[in-house]
Design a binder for these strands. Sequence first.
DNA 1: CTCCTATATGCAACTTGTTGCACATGGTAG
DNA 2: CTACCATGTGCAACAAGTTGCATATAGGAG
Lengths: 182, 182
Amino acid sequence: MALRYALLASLYESPATGYELTRRFRERMGNVWNASHQQIYRELAKALDDGLVKVELVEQSGKPDRKVYHLADSGSAELGKWVNGFSPRPATRDPLLLKLFAGDLWSQDRLSEELSRYELDWQEELERYREIERDYFQDVQTLPRHYKLQYLALRRGIMATESWLAWAREVRDVCGAPPEGS
Amino acid sequence: MALRYALLASLYESPATGYELTRRFRERMGNVWNASHQQIYRELAKALDDGLVKVELVEQSGKPDRKVYHLADSGSAELGKWVNGFSPRPATRDPLLLKLFAGDLWSQDRLSEELSRYELDWQEELERYREIERDYFQDVQTLPRHYKLQYLALRRGIMATESWLAWAREVRDVCGAPPEGS
DNA sequence: CTCCTATATGCAACTTGTTGCACATGGTAG
DNA sequence: CTACCATGTGCAACAAGTTGCATATAGGAG
């Protein structure tokens, strides 16, 4: 049911179309929740069926009509119940770490190569996050609680990515695989 | 297909029954891969069907026979191919972070309470990891590569958990929710 | 004596996530 | 002129993960 709550939580911020929700997940909430547009459209239809959201049709010329989804009263009630309940930690399933257990089959060069790709990725992501931090969260203590909490989600993204980068350095230390430029 | 490779990787270490694989995932590889016993038995049957593993029946009195699975040649070949290919980063879906986006519906007390539960959990996990580190990985540089890589998986667990704990402290700083004993 | 835990296996139904495809148009890059 | 990208919606098939149940025995806690 968690995707359902992810959608409700995003609609709680502001009404949106399935397309916009897809972008929010990809761009602003990538660190928090992921879902494809197919999954989102499917789940929105179900939530509509269950009366948790309402739709407003907005006609457009050329393109298909926009279906703007709003949170219904029962929707925010449900969301409230879920948010105030306890959620267990998500399970980890990481292919990169898994490969370490078949290390003898993994050539040192390929490990190093793959690690470099990940590092580039993490570095880029970290820079994106830091930019958002600079641009939108200068004076955190003065912000209303709502934005403080979103800031904390961003901070989690930053810290998680930094932690991966620090780990990558340890991998190179232990395995003697020097970074790209050395 | 990734669960399949998780099983092959674990069998690459040593042959095991479905039951033992379940325990390995839960105890030693919790940080890397998770799967229920139902999922594991189902996937083992499929892998057997595809000729990637072999079974050896070991009779027992009282209990059901043990089915000890071994990696077949085609199994380690497949595993080798997968390990040396590139795996994209897994998507994140974290209910705790998601709740931050519906912050107005989340009472300060419940946030603080839930955070405390997570912190206890992380703390315990961290101690378990540190114990393993102390007991089995004293002289990392002298270990063969195979164990070095497993050590790095453990290090990832330690660093990830430490990072979560550091984040929890930031949450308390920003939200003014003091830790348990204060 | 009963309940719980550990060992050891598995089926069936359901939910969630992925992948490939489809349609419709306007703008921009080559 | 053509190909791709952005907007906007969705179906269908499949793979993966969850939840509930079932079976069988031995040992320990209460």
